[in-house]
Simulated assay, not measured.
Amino acid sequence: MSLLSPSLEAFWAVVQKGTVLEAAKMIDLTQTGVTQRIRSLEKQLGVTLFTRSRKGMRLTEEGESLLRYVQAARDLEGETLLNIGGKQTPAIKEVCISGPSSLMRTRIIPKASAVIKKYPQLRVRFDISDDNSAIGKLKSGFAQLGTLPANQVGRELDSKTLSPERHYFFGPASWKKRPLSDIVEKETPVDFDPQNTMTLDLLKKYKMNKAPKQGHYANNLDALCSLLIAGVGYSALSEEMARPYVKTGALVQLSSTHFVDQSLALAWYPRAEMPPYFKSLIEALTKKS
């Protein structure tokens, strides 16, 4: 049972599935019926909620605002029905957390696991992405919580600071005795993608980027570390992320004195009433270790 209006149910289904066809299947309605409900909702509000393309339906800015209302309403819906119905089974609650692989592996998943055990009806999607897309996924409603650089947190978001990530230069164990200056001069940097500037930032900090080289890229942590282990190049990795590879002797920290800290935050859109499980997630993920 849903307390949302039929039009809002159709809106939610389109957001979840991305197309009218799949939304129609989700709520057992014809495509025409879904389209009519969306158009009726747009007419009532006097706005356009979606832009339509070959890739599906994408939310407009107005659609993103409505989505946050619907998400808040759904948060309260389950508890309301439970209180009214007495013995009804609590509704499943879904939360998506988006962030980079380093934070997900070392902090987010371990800390969220305790909250998941506390709330049996909670279902969490860990969206691991190293392309700085968390802010966009928060805006689109794909994610409800995002870990991102602190300078990306806008005024429209609520946030709490996280402990910064400290990045050092890492490379294959065979380079352990090589001078860092020799490595930077002769070897190639490796990063997640061209937009990831952590290695360049570290080089700039110590004025070692007089002639920065075009780097190699691998948008997966294991693949990137495999390149480093194979001796293809060097990279600026977070200390937490590299620790398991250093422990096994596969990678080595190339310098203990060259590092850069990245300020981080956990962000979310404000909610009039924050459900207990959501509050618990925030408290657990931002708790200082």
Rank of each mutant, 00 (worst) to 15 (best):
V95K: 03
S238D: 10
S5P: 01
L3I: 08
L266H: 01
E77F: 11
N132W: 12
V124P: 00
R37I: 15
P244Q: 13
N219K: 14
L21Y: 01
D28M: 05
A112N: 06
T60L: 03
P275V: 15
A23L: 04
S53L: 08
V95C: 01
W268F: 03
E42S: 01
S280G: 08
K279Y: 04
E79F: 01
I282S: 02
T80S: 15
K118I: 13
F11L: 05
L266A: 06
E77G: 02
E79V: 12
V95M: 03
L66G: 02
S140Y: 09
E185Y: 08
C225S: 07
L224S: 06
L203W: 04
Y245G: 05
D158R: 07
K205L: 13
A173P: 00
L103E: 10
V252I: 06
L254F: 03
K205G: 07
M198N: 06
V124D: 00
K186A: 10
S289V: 14
K118F: 11
L200G: 00
R74V: 06
P6W: 06
K204D: 00
G154Q: 13
R166H: 07
A10L: 06
A134L: 13
P6E: 07
K117I: 13
G171H: 03
A223Y: 11
S238N: 10
G141N: 02
I116S: 07
